Amino acid sequence: MLVSEILTQFETLRNGSTFTHNEKYGAVKQFGVKLGDIRAMAKKIKINHELAFELWETGYVEARLLATLIVNPKKLSAEEVSRMVHSMDFVHEADWFNSYVLKDLPNKELFREQWMDSDNKWAARSGWSLMAGRVARGYEGIDIAATLDRIEKEMPTAPSEVQWTMNTTLANIGINHPEFRQKALEIGEKLGIYRDYPVSKGCTSPFAPIWINEMVKRKESQAG
């Protein structure tokens, strides 16, 4: 498919509720297409590395989301990855990029170290997303105590986009590493970030102390 054909298809798939939702969360250049429709398009197109870059360059939210599903992460150069992450301007783009592209990069550890210190909020969000995944798997080579100190110091004034993945890192430390759990709980209570976050019925609050305790309880229940 050509980019022009895909954009035309996006126009026909416009959904008013989706458009309003995206606009609420900061989307500027968009059609308002449901995520399920974008996934369906990706299944038809399959992996198409060159098309993914053309779509990304349009700047449309839907085009970039589709790009994350059809790009081949293993073919991306460091320069290309950096260009993508620094050109993002919408939270859904960042989350799909982190979930479908970043986690499969062979040199992602290099990006984690670089981006956590970035002044670009989207790069920092991605860097802390990588850190959250890293500490969930283990912490060989990671100074967890220093990471917790950094979260305690920096998260209160970090951009909201970065706070989210810093908070995920905090929660993952508390959930997966009992020796640091009490410290993680104390930091979460002290900072109070997401304490009053609205949560749908049946979902777990992103407030770190609630999140940590709930997930630990589930793990213990499954183990028992």
Rank of each mutant, 00 (worst) to 15 (best):
V71W: 02
Y100V: 08
T58N: 02
L51P: 11
F31D: 01
N48L: 07
N120I: 05
I47L: 11
N176A: 06
G174P: 07
L110S: 14
S4G: 02
Y25C: 00
S99V: 06
S99G: 04
I193T: 12
T147D: 00
L55Y: 12
R64P: 03
I144W: 04
I38M: 02
Y139I: 09
Q30D: 02
I38Q: 06
M131L: 12
E154Y: 04
A94G: 12
A27S: 15
P156W: 09
G59A: 07
K153W: 06
A223R: 15
R112L: 08
A171W: 08
Q222D: 08
E179L: 14
R64Q: 15
E179P: 04
G224A: 13
K44D: 12
T68R: 12
K74A: 09
D143R: 03
Y60G: 05
D95A: 08
D95S: 07
E62A: 07
V3S: 05
F207S: 02
Q114Y: 06
Q114N: 11
E189W: 03
S77Q: 05
N48V: 03
R150I: 02
G59E: 11
Y197T: 04
P73D: 05
D37Y: 05
F90Y: 15
Q182L: 03
D89T: 04
T157Y: 11
I6R: 07
E5R: 13
E214I: 05
S82M: 02
K217V: 01
A124H: 06
L7Y: 12
N167I: 01
I173P: 05
